[in-house]
């Protein structure tokens, strides 16, 4: 067993786990933050995507022990002061989710993508969100939502 100390959404946590424990399982089981989902455990679907030290990464192909000392952000940390993040607002407005299972990973991916490309074309949005598989929406509502959120974020809140 090893000790893992990290910050998630600004809150410090400490836990003990086997070295083999996947980061996503640590977040969900040991920290009780179940917003981050598991869809494939081999890096393809993107449902488990979180922010690690400010950059998006798959938490199913990272070990919890590797996150010792890291700052993570999960979907639970996206809301600020009780208000939905512009991405969350836009997903709702544009029907960017149905079953909601891909949504946390999609939001984290879109957040990182828009930081690297604040004014994307639709083609670039599709490329950016192709990191996450969604089986429900056909992506159209998501593309619309990311485009709208980009505009909001560019304009300041």
């Amino acid at each position: 067993m090893m000790t893992v100390r990290l910050k998630v959404n600004g809150v410090a946590h400490e836990g003990r786990c086997e070295p083999r424990k996947l980061l996503v399982d640590f977040i969900r089981e040991d920290l009780g933050l179940t917003g981050t989902h598991v869809g494939c455990e081999h890096g393809i679907c993107g449902a488990c995507t979180i922010m690690v030290n400010g950059e998006s990464a798959r938490s199913c192909i990272m070990l919890a022990v590797q996150a010792d000392g890291a700052e993570l952000m999960t979907v639970e940390g996206l809301m600020q002061d009780g208000k939905l993040h512009p991405l969350q607002e836009a997903f709702r407005e544009h029907h960017g989710l149905q079953c909601g299972f891909c949504t946390p990973g999609m939001l984290m991916t879109a957040l990182d993508f828009l930081r690297t490309n604040p004014s994307p074309s639709d083609g670039e949005i599709r490329e950016g969100i192709s990191a996450v598989l969604c089986r429900c929406t056909g992506y159209q509502g998501i593309v619309n939502a990311v485009r709208a959120a980009a505009a909001t974020l560019r304009g300041g809140r």
Binding site: G46, A57, M62, T109, D112
Partner: peptide, 9 residues
């Protein structure tokens, strides 16, 4: 190479 979140790591 994969996608941005893959290239992060």
């Amino acid at each position: 190479v994969g996608h941005l979140p893959i290239r992060t790591r």
